[in-house]
Nucleic acid binder design. Structure first.
Length: 269
DNA sequence: AGACAGGGGAGTG
DNA sequence: CACTCCCCTGTC
């Protein structure tokens, strides 16, 4: 098995923190399915072992080319965030494919992680084609334009989100997503918000996890909970206010702070 | 058995 | 802002 040396990286935290859904842990290995790629990973200390992908792909996917230490330094504003960082050190924001990310988070509304995983698995099984790696099999994720059959989408148990997926499929191309990526945070966000089924939180997720907007600060119930507890003396605060506070307070890499706090709070339950 | 929540969003008032 | 409904699954 090939390997690369990795610094400031924790594979388990990165895959399991809830930002990404199409992976499966089997024995000591993680099998990752993403668009047309299927690869196998394992971390041993500072070595990342891999099969069926390339060093270049992994560096991009896990953002191994960015200066983690300086990001951590810039968001380490107080004892609360420092504590979360300490316990989850090495967690990185994954650079997902924007299309798969968009559909994933459209599925996420009023759902939970097991259900989102199931929906994505059914969608790829229904619309993608089979991939094999050793004795493990999964499916490619359908491309923009391939999710047009409403009935078939509904069979993937996505409920009322089926029409959102169909519409996103009609209105989105890779070219459009690329042009969204080129815009600044606010412009990019307003473009995503034009899609039906994409509101504030989902737009921020797509921006953070796939469009290189690391200052995005998605506020779901968990982030709302942890932020109220740590920064608002347990007072009820609107999600909009929390988002604006988070972006101002943590700055350019607020999205990293967001993910640390989110996963840290979820682990406590 | 049936009610309810689960990583929201859109539409209304 | 606050409220309701949305489709589906797992849980108590």
């Amino acid at each position: 098995m090939k390997s690369i040396v990795v610094e400031d990286f924790d594979l388990s935290h990165t895959l399991e923190c809830g930002q990404f859904f199409r992976y499966e842990k089997i024995k000591d290995f993680y099998y990752v399915s993403h668009m047309d790629a299927l690869f196998k990973l394992r971390q041993r200390d500072n070595k990342l072992l891999y099969e069926n992908t390339t060093k270049q792909y992994l560096i991009s996917f896990f953002r191994l080319d960015e200066d983690y230490k300086s990001i951590i330094r810039s968001i380490s504003k107080d004892v609360h965030i420092k504590k979360a960082i300490k316990s989850l050190y090495g967690l990185r924001i994954i650079r997902q494919n924007p299309w798969e990310c968009l559909i994933s988070y459209i599925c996420s509304s009023n759902a939970n992680i097991p259900k989102i995983k199931m929906n994505l698995s059914l969608l790829s099984k229904r619309f993608g084609h089979k991939m094999i790696l050793g004795d493990y099999g999964s499916y490619t994720f359908p491309k923009p334009g391939q999710l047009s059959h409403l009935k078939k989408i509904q069979e993937c148990k996505v409920g009322y989100r089926a029409r959102f997926i169909k519409q996103a499929n009609q209105q989105t191309t890779y070219k459009k997503l690329l042009s969204v990526e080129k815009q600044d945070y606010h412009t990019a966000k307003s473009m995503l918000l034009e899609l039906h089924g994409v509101g504030d939180k989902i737009a921020d997720c797509v921006l953070l996890f796939s469009l290189d907007k690391l200052n995005a600060f998605p506020v779901d119930v968990w982030v709302q909970r942890v932020m109220q507890e740590l920064y608002f003396k347990n007072k009820k605060v609107t999600k909009t206010h929390i988002r604006e506070f988070g972006q101002n307070y943590f700055g350019k890499y607020a999205g990293y702070a967001n993910q640390f706090l989110f996963y840290y709070r979820r682990q406590q339950k």
